[in-house]
Simulated assay, not measured.
Amino acid sequence: MNTPATPDQPLSGRVAVVTGASSGIGEATAERLAAMGARVAVLARRAERLDSLVERIGQKGGRALAIAVDVTDVAAVQSAADRVTDDFGDADLLVNNAGVMLPAPIEERATDQWQQQVDLNITGLMNVIGVFTPQLVKAAQERGVADLVNMSSIAAQNIFPNFAVYSGTKAFVTHLSRHLRVELGPKKVRVSALEPGIVGTELQNHVTDEGALQWLADSKESGMEWLTPQDIADVVGYLTALPSRVNLQQVTIMPTAQPS
């Protein structure tokens, strides 16, 4: 039986799935949703990190389930979805957060990096959406609301040198989300695209392009305070706890001092 929502735990009774949950925004979001009362399935490739996250959530009185999975493997994603249903019931809150950022000048023809970004940021995202959407639709009909939250980036809107492929994948995420909102909204599934500016996560650790690294370093040296993963997690918690009639379609979240 689902526990009724309360002001302190507005997501009680809900079943959340968070991808890319082994660090950064995904990790913080899983902890935030659990603190708000949701049962949370955390998905990522690093099993040990997920186990540690589940333990922390449990110590704070929450319930979480760790599922080690590569979202580019659609069969593995389907298996993960089946396990969520078996353990928690159908998911009614999905946060698509898994992604990678690998900027490079287009003339370098870093085709392996291009493919990696397309595979994870687009194909992996679509695998998760395709597998979990039936659960979201079913849960929305039974419970009155479900949420699909896709993690995009300010790069979907703005121009950053050497970020063309990454920015293209995030533009896909934002535009896809608009279309899915029209398609799924009448079925009581809210769709939101979040577009953060610079967030201090492991994402920057994968960057090797000197120009991008210099840009990131300059932003730090200028004294600009980056967003934290907890900032984004708080926004996810806020928008998923809103009354079912309210859908924040697209949210841009910027460091106060970041110009673009």
Rank of each mutant, 00 (worst) to 15 (best):
I232R: 03
N150C: 14
A212L: 05
G144R: 13
A98R: 06
W215K: 10
L136N: 09
K188Y: 09
P259R: 02
K187Y: 08
K170C: 00
D8Q: 13
L11W: 01
A155K: 00
V131M: 12
I154V: 07
A257E: 06
E195C: 12
V207G: 01
V235I: 13
T256E: 09
Q249V: 12
L53D: 00
A30D: 09
L227I: 03
D70R: 10
A21P: 07
S52I: 13
P255T: 00
P259C: 03
K60L: 12
D231M: 07
D73Y: 03
S152Y: 02
G211A: 07
R32S: 05
R63T: 09
V118A: 11
A5C: 07
E31D: 10
A5Y: 02
R109N: 09
R109V: 10
A104G: 13
G197D: 00
I106E: 04
A44E: 04
L136I: 10
G130K: 15
L65I: 02
A47S: 09
V251S: 09
R46K: 05
K138R: 15
A30P: 11
N121H: 03
R143H: 14
E108F: 11
D86M: 10
G99F: 03
M254A: 01
A171F: 06
P134Q: 12
D112R: 13
A110E: 06
L43K: 05
A35Q: 06
L239P: 04
V182Q: 15
T29K: 09
S244M: 08
N2F: 09
K170N: 01
N2S: 12
R109M: 13
K170V: 00
E221D: 14
A30Y: 05
P134L: 11
H206N: 11
T208L: 10
R39M: 07
P259I: 01
T174K: 08
N205M: 12
H175F: 13
V182E: 15
L227H: 00
A5N: 04
A75M: 10
A5E: 08
S244N: 10
P186E: 05
